[in-house]
Write a protein that binds this DNA or RNA. Structure first.
Length: 566
RNA sequence: UGGGGUGUCGCCAAGCGGUAAGGCACGGGACUUUGACUCCCGCAUGCGUAGGUUCAAAUCCUGCCACCCCAGCCA
C-alpha cells in the first residue's frame, strides 16, 4: 500500500506507534534480538471461514507493521486441521486481503507445505527423549491432565523407549492405527500451572481429506507444534497474534528451542477487536448464516469483510478505523459509531452527491406550467468543486420525502408546512399551500407555489430560507429498491448477554423500501461506486442484486442528523 | 484455589518520575442552497484501590480489589 494514496490521511497511513513497535524497536536496536535483521511478519488465517473485521485488525497490524519497518509480511494458510478447512475459503481470503489493499508479493504459503519437515522435527524430538507416543484415549488424557491446582498424572507411556515411540510414530504416519488410538506428546512438565506444558499433544491421527495434500497424511500436527515451525521456516521475526495465545508462548518457545529451529521468531500478543452490537467469531457468524437469519456471509449486516464491502464500506475507511483504534492488550469493545464515523469521513470526501427520495410523496407546484421543463446545474460534490456539476431535470410535479412535510409542524421544524417557504435544492423557493390526503389520512400530495425570482434557489431580495430539501422530478425519476440497515443485535454485547445470540437479534435490522424515486443520473451505476443521497446518507448499488434496469441500493451509513423537535 | 494477562473520561487510547495528548460519543455556539460537512467552545484536581518511597508518582515499591484467558487428539 502506498502511504500517499489515501485521500484522507496522506501521511498517516502507517500503523501508528504502539507497544508492539516499541518491542520491535528494542529488538532492532544494536545488541537487540534482531539487530540488523529485516522485520518479517505473517498473517496466518485458517481457511475455515470468511474473514471479518476482527481479522482486518490482524491484517493491518501484520502487514502494516512490515510496511512501517520496510519489512515483509507473508500470507499463510494455517491448514493443519483438514476436518474444518476447505479450499473454498482460500480464494475468498486472498480476495478480501487484496481488497483491503495489501500485497504479499508472491509469499503465499500453506502450513501443509511443511508437513514433511514437521514430521522430521517430531522424529528428532522423539530421539532426544522430548516426545513420546501416548496410547491414552482423549477422555483418558483429559482425566489425567490434572486441575487448576493439582498436577497432571504421568501417562503410562511417558517413559517408553525413544526407539519404541519412533517406531510407533512412523506407523501412525503409515496409517496402521485408527483415529484416536494414539498421539505424539511432548514431554515437558506435568507440574506446570500452565496446562499447555503438561505434555501437550503434538500430533493426532486424523483420517480426513486435506484440501491440498489429499490423503497423503493421516496424522496432522497440532497448532502449538506447527505454528512455531511455520514461523521459523519462513524466517519470521515477529509472530503477532491475539491474547488467548499468551500462555501458549512458553510452548512456542519450547518448540523453537528444542527442534533447533533455523530461526527464533518472537511471539507478541495483542487484544482482539470487538465491536458492540455485533459478534466477532466465525462460529457465531456461522450460526447466523446457517440459521437463515442473514442472507449469507456477505449479508450487508454482517461484520465480514465481504458483508462490509457489499454494505458499501471502503477499504480506506476500514484501514483507517483499525489504525485509529490503536493496539493494546486491553480487552475492549469499540463503538460501532466509530466505524461509521470512519466511513462517513471517507465518503464525505469522495462520494458524488445525488438526489433520491426514500418515502415519496408528490409535490405539485400549482403555478408552474405543466408543459414546462428546466434543467438545473447541481454540484456533484461541494467538497471537491473540481468534480463539477450535472444537469438535473425539474418540472411541475416532483417527488419529495414524506417527512419533509408536516401538516402541523413540530416546534423547530423548518421544512414544508402550510404557509412556509422552503428551498428546493438548486431549483426554486416554494411556499406550501396545503396538502391532500388519501382515505387513510395519509398525506399523498403537497401543494405549493414557486417564486420565479428565485431560480437556482437564490434569494435576490436576501430573504432567509431556513430549509432546503431534496427532490426528484417525477417526469424523469427512476424507481429503485433501497435497503436500510440497523444493528444486527439489539444488545451491545450479544456474546455475553446470552449464549443464545439469536434471541438478541434486532428484528428491525433490515428495512426494504421497494418504491424509491431516484434521479435519472443514477441510471447504470454499478458497485463499488458510492453516492451520498443528499440529506439521507451514503448508498451504493448492491453488488449481488442490483441490475442496470432494476437498481438496488444499500444504505452504507446514514448522515448524522441533529434534528429533533424542540 | 494454580498459571497467564489487564485495569487512565460513556467508548477507544497516549503517557515510560516533573505535575493527565488525541479521536469517537455527548453538550453548547458559528457557518450553511445537505438540520450534513467545516469551525470554535465545553467535557478526568483525576489515572481500580489502600498504603509507602520521593521536593515531585498515572508512572517506582507493597498489599488488596475487579475483570479476561487456560484443563480440544481446535486454531
Amino acid at each position: 500500500m502506498n502511504s500517499n494514496n489515501d485521500p484522507i490521511n496522506p501521511t498517516t497511513d502507517d500503523v501508528s506507534a504502539n507497544f508492539i513497535h516499541d518491542l520491535i524497536d528494542e529488538d532492532l536496536a544494536p545488541g537487540g534480538r534482531f539487530a540488523g535483521k529485516t522485520v518479517h511478519t505473517r498473517f496466518p488465517p485458517e481457511p475455515n471461514g470468511y474473514l471479518h473485521i476482527g481479522h482486518a485488525k490482524a491484517i493491518v497490524i501484520d502487514f502494516g507493521t512490515a510496511e512501517k519497518y520496510n519489512g515483509l509480511c507473508n500470507l499463510r494458510m494455517d491448514d493443519t486441521n483438514p476436518s474444518t478447512e476447505d479450499v473454498e475459503y482460500v480464494e475468498a481470503i486472498q480476495n478480501d486481503i487484496r481488497w483491503l489493499g495489501y500485497d504479499w508479493g508472491g509469499r503465499f504459503y500453506y502450513a501443509s507445505d511443511y508437513f514433511p519437515q514437521m514430521f522430521d522435527f517430531a522424529c528428532r524430538l522423539i530421539e532426544k527423549g522430548l516426545a513420546y507416543v501416548c496410547e491414552l484415549t482423549p477422555s483418558q488424557i483429559r482425566a489425567t491432565r490434572g486441575t487448576l491446582t493439582t498436577p497432571a498424572t504421568p501417562s503410562p507411556y511417558r517413559d517408553r523407549p525413544a526407539s519404541e515411540s519412533l517406531d510407533l510414530f512412523r506407523r501412525m504416519r503409515a496409517g496402521e492405527f485408527p483415529d484416536e488410538a494414539m498421539t505424539l506428546r511432548a514431554k515437558i512438565d506435568l507440574n506446570s500451572g500452565n496446562f499447555n506444558m503438561r505434555d501437550p499433544v503434538l500430533y493426532r491421527i486424523l483420517r480426513a481429506h486435506h484440501h491440498r495434500t489429499g490423503d497423503d497424511w493421516c496424522i496432522y500436527p497440532m497448532y502449538d507444534f506447527a505454528h512455531p515451525i511455520e514461523d521459523a521456516l519462513e524466517d519470521i521475526t515477529h509472530s503477532l497474534c491475539s491474547l488467548e495465545f499468551e500462555d501458549h508462548r512458553p510452548l512456542y518457545d519450547w518448540v523453537i528451542e528444542h527442534i533447533d529451529a533455523p530461526a527464533k521468531p518472537r511471539q507478541i500478543e495483542f487484544a482482539r477487536l470487538n465491536i458492540n452490537h455485533t459478534v466477532m467469531s466465525k462460529r457465531k457468524l456461522r450460526i447466523l448464516v446457517e440459521g437463515g437469519h442473514v442472507s449469507g456471509w456477505d449479508d450487508p449486516r454482517m461484520p465480514t469483510l465481504s458483508g462490509l464491502r457489499r454494505r458499501g464500506y471502503t477499504p480506506a475507511s476500514i484501514r483507517n478505523f483499525i489504525e485509529r483504534i490503536g493496539v493494546s492488550k486491553v480487552n475492549s469493545m469499540v463503538d460501532y459509531a466509530f466505524l461509521e464515523h470512519c466511513l462517513r469521513e471517507d465518503l464525505n470526501q469522495n462520494a458524488r452527491r445525488v438526489m433520491a427520495v426514500l418515502r415519496p410523496i408528490k409535490l405539485i407546484i400549482d403555478n408552474y406550467p405543466a408543459d414546462r421543463n428546466e434543467k438545473f446545474p447541481v454540484e456533484n460534490n461541494p467538497e471537491r468543486p473540481e468534480d463539477g456539476v450535472r444537469e438535473v431535470s425539474f418540472s411541475r410535479e416532483l417527488w419529495i420525502e414524506a417527512d419533509d412535510f408536516m401538516e402541523t409542524p413540530a416546534k423547530g421544524y423548518f421544512r414544508l408546512f402550510p404557509g412556509n417557504e422552503v428551498r428546493l435544492k438548486s431549483a426554486y423557493i416554494v411556499r406550501c399551500t396545503g396538502c391532500k390526503k388519501d382515505a387513510d389520512g395519509q398525506v399523498r400530495v403537497v401543494h405549493a407555489e414557486y417564486d420565479p425570482a428565485t431560480r437556482g434557489g437564490s434569494t435576490p431580495d436576501g430573504r432567509r430560507i431556513r430549509g432546503t430539501i431534496h427532490w426528484v422530478d417525477a417526469a424523469t425519476a427512476q424507481t429503485a429498491e433501497i435497503r436500510l440497515y440497523d444493528n444486527l443485535f439489539s444488545v451491545e454485547d450479544p456474546d455475553t448477554a446470552d449464549q443464545e445470540i439469536i434471541n438478541h437479534l434486532n428484528p428491525d435490522s433490515l428495512e426494504v423500501l421497494p418504491d424509491c424515486k431516484i434521479e435519472a443520473s443514477l441510471q447504470g451505476c454499478r458497485p463499488p461506486e458510492a453516492f451520498q443521497f443528499l440529506r439521507l446518507g451514503y448508498f451504493c448499488p448492491d453488488n449481488v442484486d442490483s441490475r442496470p434496469d432494476a437498481l438496488v441500493f444499500n444504505r452504507s451509513v446514514s448522515l448524522k442528523d441533529s434534528w429533533r423537535p424542540k
